[in-house]
Design a protein around this nucleic acid. Structure first.
Lengths: 129, 129
DNA sequence: GTAACCAGTATAACAGAGTATACCAGTATG
DNA sequence: CATACTGGTATACTCTGTTATACTGGTTAC
């Protein structure tokens, strides 16, 4: 390590008693958990009261059965949601949010807020036709 | 369309005067803009005062030169950051955040908050060794 | 002269997120 | 009997974000 780099590091630590590193780590952890195109929309749908598979599917235009199925499975494994089978006929399935899941509420809210505020600025890549 | 589905839709609209659809759209727009593994960490780094290429690179462990270069280029194209060349010798480059970029502050803050609160719950897939 | 810094570019390859399409068993509706 | 609903699975494929590795040109320090 060069002296320059060393001095930079010392300066950084001194100016950051609570360390930027922890914040970066926390940020990256969160990105890891809610990463991907569908995770947050699904959480949002379930928190908004959509419980049934097809109901969630319909509420998120563009998502495929496969992706929804996969995400739900993983989210159940990670204790984000609860899957309940109602032994009626035909069998019904209900997905409900755990409190862990609802802890994303503030993030989702902020993101909706941002999206609404900056609607006009966004130029999406054209969807495949 | 079946009567059932039709009734469901009516019920949904009635219970949602300000329409969940707009919120979902806003959420997906935001996901689209800040999507990916590196976008938010880079924004965070620049907002925290890291201006120089190598400085940003060093502040985000794991990122490659290529990814940082690509992201910076795209972010500049999208008016998220400003790239300034200082004609010294050797040439220096400074990246600074636009106010548009800083508008992600609240989202990043919420995500850091979440990450810190749920640190222990996260089981990351083991990194490649 | 060689090692390290700056700000990147080039090339190739990979992994997995995401898409497309079809299909299953079971039930109810007309 | 055909159609449409339920909650999904199976197979195959694409795409691109991401990684890995090497390299460039110019400058400064030892």
């Amino acid at each position: 390590m060069t002296d320059k780099k060393r001095l930079e590091e010392i300066a950084e630590v001194l100016s950051n008693p609570r360390s930027q590193k922890d914040e970066l780590q926390a940020l990256q952890d969160t990105i890891y958990v809610i990463g991907g195109k569908w995770r947050l929309p699904i959480i949002n749908a379930i928190c908004n009261g959509h419980k049934r598979f097809r109901e969630i599917e319909r509420s998120i235009p563009g998502i495929t059965t496969r992706m929804l199925s996969r995400e739900l499975k993983e989210m159940e494994a990670n204790q984000l949601i609860k899957r309940t089978v109602i032994p009626s006929s035909p069998v019904m399935v209900e997905y409900t949010a755990t409190s862990y899941c609802r802890s994303f509420g503030d993030i989702i809210l902020e993101m909706i807020k941002w999206g609404k505020a900056h609607r006009k600025k966004i130029i999406r890549k054209p969807e495949k036709e």
